[in-house]
Amino acid sequence: MNTSMHINKTYKLYIDGKFSRTESGRYMKWVNPNNDQTINFCRSSRKDYRNAVQSSRNAFNKWNNFSGYNRGQILYRIAEMLDSRKEQFISELMVQGKSKKQSKQEVSMSIDRLVYYAGWSDKFQQIFSRVNPVSTPHYNFSTPEPSGVVSIIAPKDSYLLGFISVIVPAIIGGNTVVVLASENNPLCAISFSEVLHSSDVPNGVINILSGFTNELIDHFSSHMDVNTVINCGLDLKDTELIQKNSAVNIKRVINYGAIDWMNHDSQDPYFIMDCQEIKTTWHPIGY
């Protein structure tokens, strides 16, 4: 009687809070090494990327105006949602070649990392703000503000934890992001969009693309409406291209080299500060 067929899932992009296919109609094939089952991920185009940037730009003001408390709760909610889908992510990591023990550990660290940064939402500003003792009769203070729209090339070899470790510090600080999932193994990142979708993250705050790095880095680093590019472990040639392209509108370029995301030291508020600007405000003192 067991005639019910397995339902294969269609994996899509996550742009502006919607699960959409690539406008290009192209796919990239991924084969499950355990059972030779094939997944066709979307092979994103320049146009997909541009749509995602537009969505991030539109979301920026709203997200930036959320209170730190509110952003922290949304991040905590992401952690809750990931926790409730633990088994799914463990099995996905195993499908991608990790042992059961490694997979369990990575998922549990991913949840912890979300909780860690959720806690910084209304605190990093206090660590990095100051009142400056100027010698003129003025009140003067400096505070961090988000850089704006951040383009991220996620780590190639840390599909879930590395992915989370680079997007979360950016968004907790009020930025909105467009992120390219690991080219080799985009599965966890694409599934993570389902977690985001049930976590009250406003549309456009996180846009997730799958595709070929060498096809997209040129666009990721040359778009005029992007403020910061995060490069996770690309080779020297690609890094040089990103740096050259960044000149077009003076993007901040953040290079994360060989970081072991499983290490507890690969989380700190300086990752948040990488996507922050310091604003200083003056006002006279007097009657």
């Binding site: 010698s135 003025h138 604003k279 200083t280 003056w282």
Partner: peptide
């Protein structure tokens, strides 16, 4: 969206002020 804002003043500088 700028690094220095002067409110009711302008073009003031100080070594302690970024």
């Amino acid at each position: 969206r700028a690094g220095v804002i002067w409110a009711n003043t302008f073009n003031i500088f100080d070594p302690t002020s970024p």
